[in-house]
Simulated scan of single mutants.
Amino acid sequence: MAPGGSAWFCGAVRIPDGLLTRLAVQLGRPHGVAGRAVGRMLNRGNRAVITAAVAAATDGAGGGAFADIGFGGGAGLALLLERAGREGRVVGVEIARTMLDAARSRFRADIAAGRLELHEAPMDALPLPDDSLDALISTNTIYFIEDLAPAFGQLVRVVRPSGRVVLGVGDPVAMAKMPVTRHRFRLRPMAEVIAALDEAGLSLLEDRRVGNRDAFHLLICRRRA
């Protein structure tokens, strides 16, 4: 059926809007048994953009303090821990308790060693000190944020002057073709996202296309001093 109808047809399979809505809810905040499956799916499906985001944020450097905001299935945490090395530290912030519980189990040795700390919080209320990070990444998060200004303001606050913020965002034109994004997603033009980053105090260094058929924009930014 057309967008706005009661179902979506994929070949001969009819997918009701109610199922798409439940999937959208899980993508925004994975929870329960289904949420754990969604976390694994996100790790697989977003591997390319997460890997590229970590490389762009850390710029090949060992040590330092890095964060993944909205870490989902935890793939970014694992890569940041590798990049930080024994002398560095990593922070993970997530709103989904199911994802936090999974990360606490998976990374318990790193938590015990003081290399990783995890927090339950939204992007617009980060429980982190000012100027405490060398760089941070956040991928596939802004579709579920109502107001970008306070969220991006928090990213700027916790990153040190000249520190990097790397945002992974699905191309809005491509994402608009996915039926699930009609439910609870906020798809913004890239110009609007980039303008919000600039207003928050972040200078765009590069809008890099990554993923299958350039499906993602990797917005590589530096905090203005």
Rank of each mutant, 00 (worst) to 15 (best):
G32S: 09
I69Y: 00
A195F: 06
V49W: 08
A225E: 07
V93K: 03
V54C: 07
D198V: 02
R164H: 13
R157F: 03
G88E: 09
R157P: 09
A65T: 05
G85W: 01
V25H: 15
R36V: 12
A121C: 07
L80G: 01
Y143I: 05
S6M: 06
G28N: 01
L204M: 10
P16I: 13
A7I: 11
V54E: 09
G35S: 10
L80Q: 01
L136P: 01
T98S: 14
R86G: 01
A7W: 13
V13Y: 07
G5D: 07
T58S: 01
G76L: 09
M99Q: 12
L27S: 00
R47V: 08
F107R: 06
R160Y: 00
G72L: 06
T21I: 11
G32W: 13
E120A: 12
G11M: 12
V54A: 01
G32F: 11
L136A: 09
V165W: 08
G92M: 01
V90C: 09
D59F: 06
R106N: 00
L118D: 01
L167E: 04
E199T: 11
A65V: 05
L116K: 03
E120S: 07
L202P: 13
L23N: 03
L126T: 10
V210L: 10
A121Y: 06
D101M: 05
A103R: 08
A113P: 11
Q26H: 05
L19P: 03
L128W: 00
A151M: 00
P3E: 11
F144E: 04
R209H: 13
L205H: 10
N43R: 15
L77F: 04
S138W: 02
D110Q: 14
G28E: 04
I220L: 12
F152S: 09
R108D: 13
A96W: 00
D124M: 06
R89H: 11
A7N: 14
R182C: 02
I145H: 04
A112R: 06
D110P: 00
H119M: 01
V93P: 13
V93S: 11
M190L: 11
I220E: 12
I15F: 03
A113C: 07
F66V: 10
V33C: 09
G35V: 02
G62T: 11
H31C: 10
A96C: 02
D207P: 00
L81E: 08
L77V: 02
